[in-house]
Amino acid sequence: MNSAAFVVIAILTLAAAFASATLQKLMHAALMFALTFVGIAAFFFLLGAEFVGLVQVFVYVGAVAVLIVFTILLTRRDVQDTGKPNWGGAIIAIAVFGGLLWAILKTPALFIAAPQIEALTVKRIGGVLMTDYVWPLQCVGLLLTAALIGALILVMEDRDEG
């Protein structure tokens, strides 16, 4: 694995994530959100899981980010986050970060380099998905259908109240 690529992607992803969490303009935050997910997909590529990276870009940049910008358009009154940030939340987040970092740095077993692996082909993923994971796959299909119908019902206008 290339360490230069790692550093570049890490800086890009974390900066984009931080921007998407803190920018005032919602639209910019949504675009930064898309960039964050491209960065995470790049991490997946670096880790040898190309398929997951591509799915990530496809789902998040192609679908979720577009949904978010559409929602911003439909709730146009609040394109700027005017509410005051909750500083207590920020302190909690920093505390959690400190705790996690302490735990990670204290664990010596994590100082391992990546072992050699055979490339994870799409064929293998498909095979596993259709054999060992066929029930979860069906459940996810059901869940997505339910989400689709639920979202439609939620946003449908109440005609009789008018």
């Binding site: 790692f6 969490a21 964050t36 995470i40 909690i92 920093i94 959690v96």
Partner: peptide, 24 residues
């Protein structure tokens, strides 16, 4: 190493937590 990836993901997680807890 694995550690670096975990640090990155912990940072991402806390940025997400920051957004959830502090934004309105």
């Amino acid at each position: 190493t694995l550690q670096l990836f975990l640090v990155i993901s912990a940072t991402l997680f806390c940025i997400g937590l920051l957004a959830v807890l502090s934004r309105r």
